[in-house]
Amino acid sequence: MAKIIGGLTTSHIPAVGNAIENNLQQEPYWKRFFDGYEPAKEWLKEANPDMIVVVYNDHGLNFFLDKMPTFALGCADIYHNADEGWGLKPQAPFPGDAQFSWHVAESLIDQEFDICTCQEMLVDHGFVNPIRALYGTLKEWPVKTLPVAVNVVQHPVPTAARCLKLGRALGKAIESYPEDMRVVIFGTGGLSHQLQGERAGLINVDFDIECMEKIATEPEWFTQFSNAEIMRKAGTEGIETIMWMVMRGALQDEVKVIHKHYHAPISNTGAGVLVLENQ
């Protein structure tokens, strides 16, 4: 049977891709941010997943605003990265597993999560940068992937409570797959940031740290907030933190906290790495 080993959270901002591309990881601005990934990389190596499920949002590469699924699932054997229009170099394609994907789709829909299935899905920096931050830049990726896209770009976007429930259904879906498979879930994006408006540049360090603490140990806490309340505290793009709830919901209620790393600012954001392991 497939088994969820654990989950982790990570930023997915474009600047991370640029820093990797230009080999800036040990420059003073980036050093503390990237050094804090080392324990997560070691854990991931030890966890040795066959499959990573990446919960992320598309920023206008695969989905335009004409058709905007709230939740979408990759159902292909390969996912291509592509030109996003502003200079990030497209990365080698990522292997998928259509049989596993369709199992997850069937299970989610049985559990009343009517997710959009995608047999072609371009993956953008939101998907690519977390993988590069954790695996490096490779011509062939050593792991299969399942993209789970959440709309956090065009409101209405789903609530944190809904994302936690989706995560729980996703966990059941994964662990009912009959093939032996070691699975790790990435929750990407966040933490607090706001890119535009007169309040651009907002970072709320105290709220970010509180989110990290609670999402690790008591994820229901985050569901008390409406999306308006999250944006008020964490900025309009801070709403991305709801994607962490999908990862968290897929794990057991009680998890072992392996690693916590927080850094601010990185570009415009507060950035958090949590590594959580199922018991």
């Binding site: 605003l65 770009v153 065009q154 409101h155 209405p156 706001q194 535009q196 408006g197 007169e198 309040r199 651009a200 409406s226 999306n227 308006a228 944006m231 008020r232 900025g235 309009t236």
Partner: peptide, 18 residues
């Protein structure tokens, strides 16, 4: 109307804007 409309210096990209 939305409960995010009064967040200062903030424009939420929603259906109306889109």
């Amino acid at each position: 109307k939305h409960d995010y409309d009064d967040i200062p210096g903030t424009y939420v990209f929603d259906g109306e804007t889109a």
